[in-house]
């Protein structure tokens, strides 16, 4: 009797602790029941492929959230990186090139230039937050607006003005749109980049001093300080890593879409924050896992793709997504709530 009770309690605790994974599985089962055709490798690959650049952004964002920060400038950094990389990777025979005399650059150069730009912005964010003690919301709100201005100046200028930067060269298109053929399918490179980023971030969070410090700073900044952790330095590095990830993701966005404008990446930061909180990252800091973040992103992409597959109105998708954000966090609060 007693034993049974214990078992029940531990099952419900397990469910509460793993609620997002359970939800992900239920969601998949639900869609499959509604439409058995959904269960195909092509659909699976499509969802992963659409999730890839979102995962990379969300991983950067999650690190910042775990330090009890936030980053509203993420989406605009994605846009900046997209515009920079696209402008440097237009095919040499394309008529409307931003730099008509630019030679064909090896792929990695523009990617590194774009990542350097967003990495630098990340460092500035980190300095403003940790050295000037500006609340992260305000610091990155200011940065979001500033970066949009910078991107627009870079983007909207003669000879072609505010026209989308297109005509990307073949190596860039291959880099973002193709994949490794396995049998009759093709595993997109995008998915492989996302997996690599995931492994890298997992190692940083779990196996390095930086990762431990990140959790400590978000969990109890006083304790971290008293133990001799250089809080400012660690925060700056976390914002730097986020900037680099946004930058990389921005180049992928440009390549995936085939063009870039100053509005590429607009509002991506809110999608990333939503995915993180649904994945169990605490906005008050100190809590979050890589697997949770990935699951959070996947849930949103499966809702996007799955509901569209079922032919449900995209407007209803918004309602579902909005509700999920609130419900997920309500569950999370229950998990961490303490009775007085």
């Amino acid at each position: 009797m007693n034993n049974q009770f214990l078992k029940k309690a531990s099952i419900s605790k397990w469910l509460l602790d793993n609620v997002i994974y359970v939800f992900l599985i239920l969601l998949l089962i639900g869609i499959v029941i509604a439409s058995p055709d959904f269960l195909s490798i092509t659909n699976f690959i499509n969802i992963l492929s659409q999730s890839s650049s979102r995962i990379i952004i969300a991983l950067g964002m999650a690190g910042i959230l775990i330090t009890a920060g936030t980053d509203l400038s993420a989406g605009r950094m994605v846009g900046l990186a997209a515009v920079i990389s696209a402008s440097l990777l237009q095919a040499t025979d394309y008529a409307y090139r931003m730099y008509p005399h630019l030679p064909h650059l090896p792929l990695f150069v523009p990617i590194l230039v774009a990542m350097a730009a967003t990495g630098m912005i990340g460092v500035i964010n980190g300095i403003i937050v940790s050295k000037l003690n500006v609340p992260p919301f305000i610091a990155t709100l200011g940065m979001m607006i500033t970066v949009y201005g910078l991107t627009s100046i870079y983007f909207d200028r003669p000879p072609y003005g505010a026209a989308p930067i297109g005509g990307l060269n073949k190596s860039f298109i291959t880099f973002a749109q193709r994949g490794i053929p396995i049998g009759q399918y093709e595993v997109p490179y995008l998915v492989i980049y996302a997996i690599l980023a995931t492994i890298l971030i997992w190692i940083i969070w779990n196996k390095t001093q930086l990762g431990k410090n990140m959790y400590a700073i978000g969990g109890n900044p006083e304790a971290a300080k008293v133990s001799g952790v250089n809080v400012a330095k660690n925060i700056i590095i976390i914002y730097l890593i986020a900037g680099l990830l946004y930058g990389f993701s921005g180049t992928l966005e440009a390549g995936r879409v085939g063009s870039a404008t100053n509005n590429t990446g607009n509002m991506y930061e809110l999608d990333a924050i939503a995915a993180c909180v649904v994945g169990g990252v605490s906005l008050s800091g100190g809590i979050g896992t890589v697997s949770g973040v990935i699951t959070g992103v996947l849930i949103f992409q499966i809702i996007n793709y799955g509901l569209a597959f079922l032919g449900i109105s995209p407007y209803i998708q918004f309602i579902v997504k909005g509700a999920i954000i609130v419900i997920a966090v309500a569950f999370d609060m229950r998990k961490h709530a303490k009775k007085r």
């Binding site: 431990k212 959790y215 400590a216 978000g218 969990g219 109890n220 006083e222 304790a223 971290a224 008293v226 100190g286 809590i287």
Partner: peptide, 9 residues
């Protein structure tokens, strides 16, 4: 008296 620890870790 107030223990200075990172409770989540």
């Amino acid at each position: 008296q107030e223990l200075n620890q990172v409770r989540q870790q």
